[in-house]
Structure formats: structure tokens, C-alpha cells
């Protein structure tokens, strides 16, 4: 039994990898169908009026939207399988280069937000759980509920107002001069600035990250506070916690080694589940702070009714969610020995 449980980790990973295929297939299909049931002709919607009638027809043909749905669907599946996402209609950019050019900004925003949420959420959740029903607990819970319930753009606006007058950057990912000077290598501005060794630029980019990451981080931190608090309350009442006390383990170690650790395990799973919420929040945050990320692009293309671009970006978002859920499952299996069955 012991050896089976240990040997099954690679098998478990392969299993989860295989499971990804149907998950992505479902997502891709839903995206495809949703965009097809929307009324109207995407070509005339996005570039109509700007091009001649023949040119529009040529575009429709190139897109394949004059052909039967099932043919389009199969072709789309084939494209996705080969990681070919096509081009946007309105400005002829390959979807992959949209993802590469703008993905970096979204990546650093969301990672920063997770960091903010963990750094604020875990300690607050632990304090609230340890001192249940104290003034601190009540305050922290109120804070958690508020930060979760207040819409992203309101939080953003409040932060911008608070920063007003201090000269702290309140929009975009960097000042124009930094953007101009840093050579794009990875297209992740922060990393590029580090590669360039330009500490002034790094500082500038980091400063620009503070308010957006805080805004998105506060949204997530409410979820974490609640989860950590409830988990801690549960594990503190747990049988093995009492058993540890019965062995005379000092209370601080009982709390740290037995209660905290076990209370944080479900956080990994929830972290994975929050990726979808984070991406949704990121879109709103990016709009609020004029952030040059994928969310801003998505909204722009949606407004332009540029269906190929929207389809490509949404598919990409979905794949990200599926992939993170895979990573989360694997990390979970590494941390919690019971998962590997």
C-alpha cells in the first residue's frame, strides 16, 4: 500500500494531463458556439464601412464563415490543437502576438494580486481564527467581506483618489520613457527591465504595479481571509489537534504544526479555483487602470465585435484556467499525501 501510494505520483500526473484534453475541448466548444449564436455578421460588424464589398466577401471567405457550422467547428478544433489561433479581423494582428505582447502585463498584474492577497489574507485569516469573536476577528471579517463585495472599479477609484496629489502612478504599467527605453525580450516588462539592468525602470514598473495589484489583490484577499479563518476554526477543533495536546505538545506548536498547516492545505485548491475570478477581476482592473494587458485587449475586441480575436483570447483564458487547475492538483498531491490515491 505504501509503495503503491508513492509510485502513483507520475501516473497521477499523466492521468490529470489526459483529463485536460476533454476539459479544454468542452471549453473550446462552448466558446465557439457562444460566438456563433450571437447575431450579426462579424466581418461587417468589425470592419464594415471601412472596406469595399468585395474585400468584405474575401474576408468572409478567408474566415470560412460562409461554410457550414460543422466544417467551421472541425477546422477550429484543428487550429486549436495546433496552437493556431488565427488573426484579429479589425487590425490583422495574429492572436498569438496579442497574447505575447499583452500577456506579460496581465501575468505580472495577477501574480502581484495573488501575492497581495496571500500576504494580507493568510495572516489576517489566521489571527481571526485564533481569536474567534474578538474585536480583531470582527474587524477582519468585516474587512474581508467589504474587500470582496466592493466592485473592482470602486476599489480602484478609491485607491486612485487616495494616491491623488502624491504623484504616485495611477495608470498604465510604466511611464512612457520606461516603455520606450526597455528593450522587449520576454515581453514581460518587469523581467525585461531586470534583464536590461535598468533599476530605475524596474522601480518605475513596480510603482505602477502597486495600485492595480492592490485593487485586484483586495478582491481575492476577502476569499482567503474567510477560507483560512474557517479552516483554522475547524482544524483547531480537530481530533489530531486534541491528540497532539494530549501528548503534551506545547500549544504554540500544536497551533503551528498541526492546526495552521492543515488549515492552509485547502488554500491550494481554492487558489486554483480563484484563477477564473482573478482573470475576470483582471479585466476590470485593467480597464480601471488603463493597463496594457489581455483584459483591455479583450474588451476592445469585444467592442469591435472582432470575433476571431475574442474567440482566440477567451480560448487562451480558458486554457490558462485548465492548466492552473492541473498545476494546483499536482502541488496538492505533493503537499497532501492522501491525494495520491
Amino acid at each position: 500500500m505504501a509503495s503503491a501510494a508513492q509510485g502513483s505520483l507520475p501516473r497521477y500526473v499523466v492521468q490529470r494531463l489526459l483529463l485536460m484534453i476533454p476539459m479544454i475541448w468542452v471549453v473550446v466548444t462552448v466558446v465557439f458556439l457562444l460566438l456563433r449564436v450571437a447575431p450579426g455578421d462579424p466581418v461587417s460588424a468589425s470592419v464594415g464601412g471601412r472596406l469595399s464589398e468585395e474585400e468584405l466577401d474575401r474576408r468572409r471567405e478567408a474566415l470560412g464563415i460562409d461554410r457550414p457550422l460543422w466544417q467551421q467547428y472541425l477546422e477550429y478544433l484543428g487550429d486549436v490543437a495546433r496552437f493556431r489561433f488565427g488573426e484579429s479581423l479589425s487590425d490583422n494582428r495574429p492572436i498569438t502576438s496579442i497574447i505575447i505582447d499583452n500577456g506579460g502585463a496581465t501575468l505580472t498584474l495577477t501574480l502581484g494580486a495573488f501575492l497581495v492577497a496571500l500576504v494580507i489574507g493568510i495572516p489576517l485569516g489566521l489571527v481571526a481564527g485564533r481569536r474567534r469573536d474578538s474585536a480583531a476577528d470582527v474587524g477582519i471579517r468585516l474587512f474581508g467581506i467589504t474587500s470582496y463585495a466592493v466592485p473592482v472599479f470602486v476599489t480602484g477609484l478609491v485607491l486612485v483618489l487616495l494616491a491623488g496629489g502624491t504623484g504616485w502612478p495611477t495608470y498604465d504599467i510604466a511611464s512612457p520613457i520606461t516603455k520606450f527605453q526597455v528593450e522587449p525580450v520576454t515581453h514581460i516588462l518587469l523581467v525585461d527591465a531586470l534583464i536590461a539592468g535598468d533599476m530605475g525602470a524596474v522601480g518605475d514598473v513596480l510603482q505602477h504595479h502597486v495600485l492595480p495589484c492592490l485593487t485586484l489583490g483586495l478582491l481575492l484577499c476577502g476569499v482567503f481571509i474567510r477560507l483560512v479563518r474557517v479552516n483554522l476554526l475547524m482544524t483547531m477543533k480537530g481530533d489530531y489537534v486534541e491528540a497532539a495536546r494530549a501528548r503534551g505538545i506545547p500549544e504554540r506548536y500544536v497551533v503551528r504544526r498541526h492546526a495552521f498547516r492543515n488549515a492552509l492545505v485547502p488554500l491550494i485548491t481554492v487558489l486554483g479555483l480563484q484563477v477564473a475570478l482573478t482573470l475576470a477581476g483582471a479585466i476590470l482592473t485593467e480597464r480601471t487602470f488603463n493597463w496594457p494587458g489581455l483584459g483591455t485587449q479583450l474588451v476592445d475586441y469585444l467592442n469591435a465585435r472582432d470575433y476571431p480575436a475574442v474567440q482566440g483570447l477567451v480560448t487562451f483564458f480558458a486554457v490558462i484556467v485548465v492548466v492552473t487547475s492541473l498545476i494546483v492538483d499536482i502541488v496538492n498531491a505533493l503537499v497532501d499525501p492522501r491525494v495520491r490515491y
Partner: peptide, 25 residues
């Protein structure tokens, strides 16, 4: 604290539910 120090060495306890009394991690 003094009582906690006695537990384990002087005073032991065996519980009813062996399945949940060990830390799974």
C-alpha cells in the same frame, strides 16, 4: 503550561477514533 508538560510523560490518553487522531500531513 505546567499541565501540558505533564501530559505525554506522566499522563497519557488514547482516544476512541484512531482514524482521525493522527495528523494526516
Amino acid at each position: 503550561r505546567e499541565l501540558a508538560e505533564r501530559r505525554g510523560v506522566d499522563l497519557g490518553m488514547i482516544f476512541q477514533e484512531p482514524l482521525t487522531r493522527l495528523n494526516p500531513l
